[in-house]
Design a protein around this nucleic acid. Structure first.
Lengths: 243, 243, 243, 243
DNA sequence: GATGAATGAGACTTCATTCAT
DNA sequence: TATGAATGAAGTCTCATTCAT
């Protein structure tokens, strides 16, 4: 039943099918509530085959986490355009992050929700990925500080906290964008960028951060199709990298 | 077994003991991995009594969520000192929030991690609490905007996103403070306050937000026992309401 | 809760309340599915009191069976008018039987359904009652045979079988009357009387049995309010006891 | 354990083994008192396999009822010889009925006792079967009435009652034959046939019904191996179909 | 006379996992 | 490569029954 008799596929392909199914089921049910039966059925194979290839429920979950963690970091890494200023890099990284999470909601749930919920071992897997991202953000913050000619003004531990806050805000907005109708990845990124870079204080005194020109696809920059966050093009000095 | 034979307690007391045990077990294992056996044992009663009083695993979990959600919101509500400026209120609220989560790590895990992980019904329970907090933050942001004489400058939806980001950052910092040795609630609050109010941009140009005078306990403000975040007492205008 | 605080009743009264509740619950749920909790609640007392007075679930069930079996046999015994001919006695006994079962459906279910379903010991209790009734019917049949001047024409074992059949038919009709709207006890009795006394053969050749005059309550015998079974008053010789 | 290790049987076979065991246990203990453990053990398999194949205790019970109800109706249907007169058909049907119930006492208990005792849904399952049999009997009675040239002499509702009485008597006799040493299916059938067709009145005046010639197995009809009920071959007019 | 508090035992059900083919 | 057949272990929940007051 299911997909009929699509038998005899090469191992690598079958494995990916299984992981696809597993990510979906794990993402929707959580680790414990997911059953190997359901995963095998969704993958269109028999349960013993899942065990033959992936060994155990634990290993299967770990494999899911690894694959999706790698996919997410790669997506962000690929999204960050080198050579930009710190805020430009952050902006592009956030865009990539929100794009990826929006496109892979189950994977995002696995990483953000379920992996942290169940067991130190699984949590450690994601912790590695998260640490990598936090490190990247930390580096960006430090770089920005250098750009501002302000030597190690921010103490070590403080920067770590700031990076945590930034990443946490990003995660919450990813959840929020995923749950709220009509919020695009771009809007989420812009909101976060404003929040993080300008801060509420500046936002309220009318000095929001504004995104750089988009060289990617949009041919007509003067009419933003999706209303972005910055109502006033009064760019702050720090973000005007060409200035 | 367990605590010997502390038998025949009035129902109300026993129920609280059970909830205490349940929050602990649920917080450490998650909903599904927690077993009623373990909870009953930790509570020092037999399993049937748990069912007699709390009805089912679902109901027990819901009762935990409700009790802890109420406790957290009450703590925050009680922590926010009325009559302060917007940033003063935010600061005091954050202090209370980080204090409470630091003191009740299992409850925090139940609310933030496990309740959202398992089932729409449980998620809905916390969603109510979270919405309440988000609403409070939203209100603060709007009030601050008014204080800054900038009428509805920030569009509706945008404020919602900012509140989400702020709350998300707070949640992440609560996790982080709970997991990192040597990070106090006060530090976490200060870090977040800086991040949110001043923004990275201002932080790097040397204009951090600074907390108001603490009339509560600290008699000597010039020597902060726990090194707070604000290295330079160059208060921003908005926060210096007395000025 | 429940019936408020109707406390301090004499033991005999309380016991009957408990038996009433038990018969109702047992009758509706069966022995195993009935719970002592439910019985105690319906009786308006606490569970320990039920145990204090009736000792155990088994004993409670046995007490129900005994009380209701005695009530049924007494009702039938009281209904059979002495001095009548055999068919007159059978007719009056059936009337009493169908009346009682119709008025006490739960008791009837306990005796006929549940007591026989659960355990040799309970079955033995009803078996005694049933044997008594079967013996009575057997006696009637034998008496009728004597009246017909046909000495032991029907062999011993055969009469036992006939009595079983007659009682079985009565039981089935009691169930049927209880389940079918608009079938009165009297109709059921008449149907069975016809079936048993005349037999299908005679019924179809137009010689049904007809009930004797009713001296009890009905003042106008020419207009039967409930259409009885005998459409043709062609009484058979055997039933005309006055002849 | 049990029957050693008769492992790896095709599913269809195992299912029948499980149903066999279930009918036996259910028949002896009743629905509620039967435990899945016991059934699985008697079937020689582990409990999970029972659940894998039959899904739940409810479903297992329903499967038992369906299988046995079908078996019983088929047995009766197959036993009724077409082309016979009404009484001939009734006689052959009763023979088949008593044979089947005598040979399958547990199945009979399940259908007659336990299925009606527990839950409307189970009762409905048997009700269908019983209704089918009652309808058959009703049809026979009506056919006999036509044969006797007596047009709709018996009113509609009355025939229903008669059929109920007849079926009820059959059920009681099946129980009785099953419980009484030395009562054969044939004797039970003959007793009921006499009772129903001739009626007590005729029986006592010496005009019993007599069974038709047995073309099946008995070569010597003059010496009945099992003493049948009819002592005198004085056939009644209605039963002598050839005139 | 009456009950709130408490539990040992056992029921149904599910799941991850493995043979044997 | 792939699977139908099978199970040990564990989990949630209910129930009859008893103390201690």
């Amino acid at each position: 039943m299911g997909a009929g008799k699509t038998k005899r596929m090469p191992r690598a392909v079958r494995e990916q099918q299984m992981l696809d199914a597993a990510v979906r089921i794990f993402g929707q049910r959580g680790y414990m509530a997911a059953s190997m039966d359901e995963i095998a059925e969704l993958a269109g194979v028999s349960k013993p085959l899942v065990y033959l290839y992936l060994n155990s429920k634990d290993d299967l979950f770990t494999a899911c986490i690894r694959r999706e963690a790698r996919a997410l970091t790669e997506a962000v890494r690929a999204g960050v355009l080198p050579g930009l200023s710190a805020d430009g890099q952050l902006w592009s990284g956030l865009r990539a992050f929100f794009d990826h999470t929006a496109r892979n909601p189950d994977a995002w749930r696995v990483l953000h929700l379920h992996a942290r919920t169940h067991g130190e071992l699984f949590a450690a897997e994601v912790a590695v990925m998260r640490a990598e991202i936090v490190a990247f953000v930390t580096h960006l913050i430090a770089a920005a500080a250098r750009d501002a000619h302000r030597d190690p003004h921010l103490p070590e531990g403080e920067v770590a906290g700031l990076a945590e806050a930034l990443v946490g805000a990003a995660e919450a907005l990813a959840d929020w964008a995923g749950a709220t109708e009509g919020v695009t990845a771009k809007q989420a990124a812009a909101t976060l960028m404003n929040f993080a870079w300008a801060g509420l204080g500046d936002l309220m005194t009318g000095r929001p951060w504004s995104p750089p020109e988009e060289p990617e696809a949009a041919p007509a920059p003067e009419t933003a199709p999706e209303a972005t966050t910055a109502p006033e093009p009064v760019a702050r000095a720090a973000s005007a990298q060409a200035g």
